[in-house]
Design a protein around this nucleic acid. Structure first.
Lengths: 113, 113
DNA sequence: CAAATATACATAAGATTCTTATACATAACT
DNA sequence: AGTTATGTATAAGAATCTTATGTATATTTG
């Protein structure tokens, strides 16, 4: 994804959130969207992306729909019903994660005194 | 660490930040501190912690100091000079990471219109 | 007082996730 | 004609973590 190890473990959540927002997307589109949103800071590699998509499909999180555009094949992915539910959990976990990390790096002043 | 995959890759940053803040700490103390700060949400396992500490020591990020307390051994870790510099980078990366993740999950409204 | 829990460190096997490299194919640009 | 962009795919290896186990002392609890 980039040099920072921190993104490890966040790819599925990112994909699910983008699909929740955009209905359906294809792999290459996801990489470009993420690059655009993060202003080039986060580049998802194909070696990480495609296995992740395949796994989520196998798990019943995603559905696939093939489409031929400009003589090139596209595989559109969208969330299944179970995937939509799981996305809610993932986003909630992400909020907790961010909150916990912020607590760790910028501890609140002790309000008891 | 917990059930959420999101913490994967953040352990070293957490350790470094705690050591920057507290001067020196030993392994068990780190696990308890993290548990307290996150109100029990994040539990660092020994299987993750000790190899991480040993690796950072080997990389010159941490220094070790043994101490015997109550007839039990403690290994205190503290940041080396190089470790202190690296901590600044890591914390900066963490800020970027959190900012990017927030952009991805809660995209800002387009201000061009 | 015996058993369980807390304190304290350590490692090994396996799972998961990612990087790096490679592969194939078409379209567009230079 | 060659490079870049678009588009998907996989395989080998690295890195990080989980789970399980091991050792040892101190404290609490039934």
């Amino acid at each position: 994804m980039k040099n920072s190890q921190l993104y490890k473990g966040s790819l599925n959540t990112i994909i699910m959130k983008l699909l929740e927002e955009n209905g359906k997307m294809y792999g290459y589109e996801i990489t470009q969207k993420v690059k655009a949103i993060t202003q080039g800071e986060l580049n998802i590699t194909e070696g990480a992306l495609y296995p992740a998509l395949h796994k989520m499909e196998a798990e019943g999180i995603l559905d696939v729909e093939m489409e031929k555009v400009d003589n090139r094949m596209r595989k559109y992915y969208k969330l299944t019903e179970a995937g939509t539910k799981e996305t809610i959990n993932r986003l909630s976990e992400l909020e907790d994660f961010i909150r916990n990390m912020q607590s760790l790096v910028s501890p609140k002043p002790n309000l008891e005194f």
